[in-house]
Nucleic acid binder design. Structure first.
Length: 591
RNA sequence: CUGCCCGUAGCUCAAUUGGAUAGAGCACCAGCCUUCUAAGCUGGGGGUUACAGGUUCGAUCCCUGUCGGGCAGGCCA
């Protein structure tokens, strides 16, 4: 009934390329077609004439005329015109769009897939928060962004693997284990002053209670034993008022950790492991409920244990980029674009986090990814030159690593900024946010901004069950279509035979045009690591649908027209659902 | 002090990476439910794109400077 769909952009690009070859075979110019912002400028515009004008030393409008004279005829083209300084505007016949609706139904989930990646393996590492407490709303943005980005890259033809780097080896984990133990000792009746720079959260007390109920007093030591040789622990008040006590407090904390390891012996590993498992498990559950999953949870500790860090350091040494000074081992990162040299092994013989990170990234490269994307908080931007520098120094190609920085999210409630302080244990957790606004609104709001922009997260707007909330606007379009299709009661597959030539209403054609943009949007979002493009596209698509909904009745008497319109909205429903999946937002059938 | 990011409508943000008359949402005003979901639609006012120069057919986008905001500058992670 309707002829097979031919992608207009691809088709026009071929035509213009042929015309270009005829008038300027040596121009070395690639034809670029763009969608004009204004409908009066046609469906597609080509700016090649203006770009050629300089090298041909001719008036751009004259060059445009020559291009058009050499353009092969096409039955997709209604008319062309030369406009402005030398744009070529192309107006398509309705038929060029009408066959799209059936094409979308036939393609199913394949519509919107673009083959940018050609199956290349790409890794996205994101969240990677220290498992020392609940995820907060800042991590939530990284989670939503990374998960959507991974979905989009998959859609764009990459073989994507999602990874979470677990910082299970450092001092922060020791502090968590110590914090848990001290709370536990309190339950045993042994009271050691709780350091103000240890983890204050209630989740630490809960872990202590669980250890106590499982093992009673097995890990009990007397307060006197614990405090032996430990310098004074400042009180919370002193610590808050006197910044000069910071170093002393850190020393006391380290002394307590040493005491814990000494007094507990092999049992320390149990407490450490218990705290890690509890927090990592909590984190994993939280993310899973948020629709964020990982293929690999990569343990930092395994880098130490398997000797990969030794190997990475040896690799740098071999290339002559290490030197010793003040008892520490330094990497000459200043020779690779960094501001100054960095320590990889401390005076005390322990590797820095940086050393582990070098080994980690070399390991990523060895695992064979064509590209590795790190999603970091924007506060880590200064860290990029040294990691890339280290990769280069070790003989790897630093351009295979791309770092995507995500800015902070600031919560607003009733127009007021919600205060957040990790130090004081005063922060809104991701779990609390999800409970308050729901997963859909949270996922959507997080990616509604370009990732490198600060995000003002309006809690009242996100949880409002009203027309103010943009996420409902899109979901509502989907639900409305479902409702119409339900009232009709037929099978979607039967609609593919409908006569799409009957779709001539301006709003129908506008909707078809919008649907045709979807694959390009996916490609742009994948190229630019920009999930927000999908969010904005879906809003525009929903707006087109709502407009048509108000302007036209779908379930009309005329059977042919009814089938054509139902075909159109069925195709729209597919694209809406597909885009929402990319963003991790549900597509409800009823609202 | 130095480096990176940002500055667009009253507010929150887009702008196909150099394209044509810079667009949405919220808020404000005026309309639209006897019809498939009004969580919707239609219309209206709102701008020297922080400022000053420069590059060119053409600049919100690139370069220089100024002002304002954020982040970073550990043998922390």
């Amino acid at each position: 009934m309707t002829r097979p769909y031919l992608d207009p952009k691809t088709h026009l690009t071929e035509l213009f390329t042929l015309a270009l070859a005829r008038i300027a075979p040596d121009a070395g110019l690639a034809i670029e077609l763009e969608r004009p912002k204004q409908a009066s400028h046609g469906d597609w515009a080509c700016n090649a004439a203006m770009q050629l004008a300089r090298s041909l030393k001719r008036n751009p409008r004259q060059v445009a005329g020559e291009l058009l004279a050499n353009l092969p005829v096409s039955d997709l083209i209604d008319k062309t015109e030369i406009a402005g300084p030398g744009f070529i505007n192309v107006f398509l016949k309705p038929a060029a769009l009408q066959s799209l609706a059936a094409h979308i139904l036939e393609q199913g989930v394949h519509f919107g897939r673009v083959n940018l990646g050609r199956g290349a393996r790409i890794q996205v590492e994101f969240v990677s928060a220290n498992p020392t407490g609940p995820l907060h709303v800042g991590h939530g943005r990284g989670a939503a962004y990374g998960a959507s980005l991974a979905n989009i890259l998959t859609q764009a033809g990459y073989a994507v693997e999602r990874e979470y780097y677990v910082n299970d080896a450092g001092r922060q984990m020791d502090i968590l284990a110590l914090s848990t133990w001290l709370r536990y000792l309190g339950l045993c009746g042994e009271f050691v002053p709780f350091p103000p720079n240890a983890y204050q959260g209630d989740y630490v007390k809960l872990m202590a209670e669980s250890v106590f109920s499982l093992h009673a007093e097995r890990y009990k030591r007397t307060a006197a034993q614990v405090l032996e040789g430990v310098p004074g622990i400042p009180s919370a008040e002193e610590y808050a008022q006197r910044p000069d006590l910071k170093d002393a407090a850190e020393e006391a904390l380290d002394a307590l950790i040493v005491a814990a390891k000494r007094l507990l012996g092999p049992d320390y590993a149990y407490l450490h492991g218990h705290a890690l498992e509890e927090q990592l498990g909590d984190c994993r559950n939280d993310l899973t409920e948020f629709g964020v999953t990982f293929d690999c949870w990569f343990s930092e500790r395994t880098l130490h244990e398997s000797g990969l860090i030794d190997r990475a350091v040896a690799q740098l040494r071999q290339h002559g980029h290490l030197y010793e000074q003040d008892g520490a081992l330094w990497f000459r990162s200043s020779a690779f674009g960094d501001e100054k040299d960095r320590v990889v092994r401390r005076e005390n013989g322990i590797y820095t986090y940086f050393a582990a990170d070098i080994a980690y990234h070399l390991n990523k490269f060895e695992r064979g990814y064509a590209r590795v994307i790190d999603v970091w908080g924007a506060d880590h931007h200064g860290y990029i030159p040294r990691v890339k520098g280290a990769l280069k120094a070790a003989g790897a190609d630093p351009d295979r690593l791309e770092v995507s920085l995500v800015q902070f999210a600031v919560l607003y409630r009733e127009g007021q900024k919600v205060p957040m302080s990790t130090r004081a244990g005063q922060y809104v957790t991701l779990r609390e946010l999800r409970a308050e606004v729901g997963n859909d609104a949270a996922r959507f709001f997080y990616v509604l901004r370009k990732s490198d922009q600060h995000l003002d997260f309006d809690l009242d707007l996100a949880k409002s069950q009203s027309n103010e909330n943009p996420v409902y606007y899109i979901q509502y379009a989907h639900a409305r279509i479902c409702s119409v299709l339900g009232a009709w009661g037929g099978q979607e597959a039967d609609l593919a035979e409908a006569d799409a030539g009957l779709l001539v209403h301006p709003m129908e054609l506008a909707l078809l045009k919008r649907l045709a943009e979807y694959p390009e949007m996916v490609a742009a979002a994948a190229r630019e690591y920009a999930p927000h493009l999908i969010a904005y596209y879906l809003r525009d698509l929903a707006a087109d649908l709502h407009g048509l909904y108000t302007a036209c009745q779908f379930l009309v008497e005329d059977q042919a027209l009814r089938a054509a319109r139902l075909l159109l909205i069925a195709a729209t429903r597919r694209v809406l659902a597909d885009g929402l999946v990319l963003l991790g937002v549900s597509a409800p059938e009823k609202m």
